[in-house]
Structures are given as C-alpha cells and as structure tokens.
Simulated scan of single mutants.
Amino acid sequence: METIYFLIIVAIAIVALSVFFSFFPVMLWISALASGVRIGIITLVAMRLRRVIPSRIVNPLIKATKAGMDLSINQLESHYLAGGNVDRVVNALIAAHRANIQLEFARAAAIDLAGRDVLQAVQMSVNPRVIETPIVSAVAKDGIEVKVIARVTVRANIDRLVGGAGEETIIARVGEGIVTTVGSSGSHKDVLENPDSISQTVLGKGLDAGTAFEILSIDIADVDVGKNIGAYLQTEQAEADKQIAQAKAEERRAMAVAQEQEMKARVVEMKAKVVEAESQVPLAMADALRSGKLGVMDYMNLKNIDADTQMRSTFGKLGGDSSKDGEDA
C-alpha cells in the first residue's frame, strides 16, 4: 500500500515539475544569464501567457548581445507578435554590423514585414549579385535582327528595399535599353564591332531609379545576328500587295462577266420583242385586207418583192460559196 502511495506521489511530482518547467523555462533563463542577458523569469512566464515562444526571443537576443548590439526584448517580442522572423532580422543586423553597414532594427523589421529577405539583402550589399537577362531581340536601322544577352551586376540598396521594384523591373529596363540602343544604330555591324556601346549607353540611363538595387555594371555576354527583318517585312508587303491586286482583278473580271450576262439578257429580250413584232405582221396584213386599206394587187406585189429578195439572198450565198471554192482550187 505504501508503494502505491509512493508511486502516486512520484507521478504527481513529475506532472507538477513538467507543468512548472513548461511555464517557467528555467534552463533558458539560466542560459540567458550565463550569456550576459538580464531577463527575469517572470518575463519569460509572461511570454508564455502572451502565446510567445520564449526561445524564439531569447536565443536571438543572446546572439545580438554577444555581437555587441544593444537590442531590447520588447523590440524582438513586438516584431514576433507582428508576424516577423526575429532570428532572420537579428542575423541581418549582425551581418550589417560586421560589414559596417548602417542598418537599424526598425528598418530591418520593416523590410522583413514587407516580405523581403533582409538577411539576403545585407549579403547582397556586401557581395553583389549578377543577373543574366534572357535573349533580347532588337532590330538595327538596316533591318537586321541582333540578339543580345547581358549580365547585370547589382547591389542591394537597403534604403529602397521597402517599396522598391525587384529584379524583374531591372531585367525589363535593361532589355528596353538594349532595344533602344540597337534600334538607333545605323547598321548591325556597328553593334557587332563595338558591343560596349550598348552597355555604356544603357548604364547611363539610370535604370536603377525606383528599384531596390544599385546597378554597378552592365556587361554584354553574347551578341548574335538573327533574321533579316527588313527583307522579311518587304516580302510580306509585296505578298500583301499581290493579293490586293489579285482581288481587284477578280473584282473587275466578275464585273465584266456580269455586264456580259446583262448584255446577253438584253439581246434575248430584244429578239423576243422582234419575234413578237413579226408575229403581229400577218395579223396586221389580214386586218388591212379586211378593212380595204391594202388591195390584193398590193399584197401580190409585196409577196413578189419578198420572193425577189429571198432569191437575191440565195444567189448571194451561192456566189460566196463559189468564190471560196475557187480560192481553194
């Protein structure tokens, strides 16, 4: 029975110690005191009550103190509660302090809360980064395409990290500068002979204005000759002109065919009217005979004239055929 009581007491003691050490991080407090960081145990317990992990605050504070920096625990805790990365901010401050870069905690915290990697920015300020642009296609005045690849050496500008444009803007501006410079060249040979003129012209445009970087240099890595864009455009224009001319010719042909069909329709209509008029002649003559306007002798003379006319037409045709036979002989 006494053994059971003893085990229960031991279990209660273990649970009590676990609860105690979970709310009272004694080991972390001892580590802070050993590192020269003066912090009370009640402060650590208050962090627990504010749902702040004490190690996320105390360990960066220990690093900052060892690096000779004067940071307060309230600053770190406020940044943590705001959703920032305290450890990364402290590492960036230490790196900036070692590199003699003026960086205050408030600015570093603002950069971190803005979504930028403040430690990477400090490292880029010390060690500049090289950005390689994709192939930029530009056309000189002679119509020849030139393909350029540039390497841009940039250094982070900590003062403009908040609100400054990123790498995409740098690449876009450099590409625009290359296109403008090549486009103003009289010949693609000038670009091939002196590619440094591109980098010097582009670098003098101040392309890093409003960005989070400072452009140190722009180097042309590769220059290639592409298509003859001028000849291609002329060929396309000639093809378009040919298609327009063909369309106009087809339109004129269609109009001519329509006019021909209209003339044929008119001829048919006129023939129909002639046939209709000829069909009325016998009726008119019969009516004239009945009414006495035309005598029998007049009618006979008319028939004789008609027969004589037909005979002469027949003789004419026979004479034409005879002459053709003579020529053939």
Rank of each mutant, 00 (worst) to 15 (best):
V15D: 10
L81I: 03
P25E: 04
N74W: 11
R56W: 06
Q102L: 09
A110M: 10
R252T: 11
R160K: 14
V37Q: 03
A11N: 05
K317D: 07
A138P: 00
G40H: 13
D87W: 02
K141C: 01
T65C: 09
Y5I: 14
G163L: 03
A245K: 12
Q261A: 12
V257L: 14
G143C: 09
D321F: 05
G177P: 00
E278G: 03
V139P: 00
G183L: 01
A46H: 06
I215Y: 00
D325A: 12
K205N: 01
V126I: 12
H97V: 02
I198G: 00
I42E: 01
G319W: 05
K189T: 11
K242Y: 06
A307R: 00
S22T: 15
P25F: 03
G40M: 06
A34T: 09
K63N: 10
V202F: 00
V274S: 08
G292N: 10
G115A: 02
D241F: 04
N157D: 14
E251G: 11
I215D: 00
K63V: 08
K271Y: 09
L283D: 03
T3V: 15
V296G: 01
I135L: 08
R252Q: 13
S279K: 15
S137V: 14
I42H: 11
S187T: 12
N301T: 14
A16I: 08
I131L: 15
F315Y: 11
D190Q: 14
A64I: 02
I178K: 01
K63S: 09
V52P: 04
A64G: 02
Q246K: 10
I94V: 11
E278N: 09
R173N: 01
S197L: 14
I220E: 02
A272D: 14
R151M: 07
I53G: 12
T65L: 08
D112Y: 03
Y232E: 04
G40V: 09
G83F: 07
E276S: 10
I12H: 09
S22I: 15
A265P: 00
A240P: 00
T201H: 05
E236A: 08
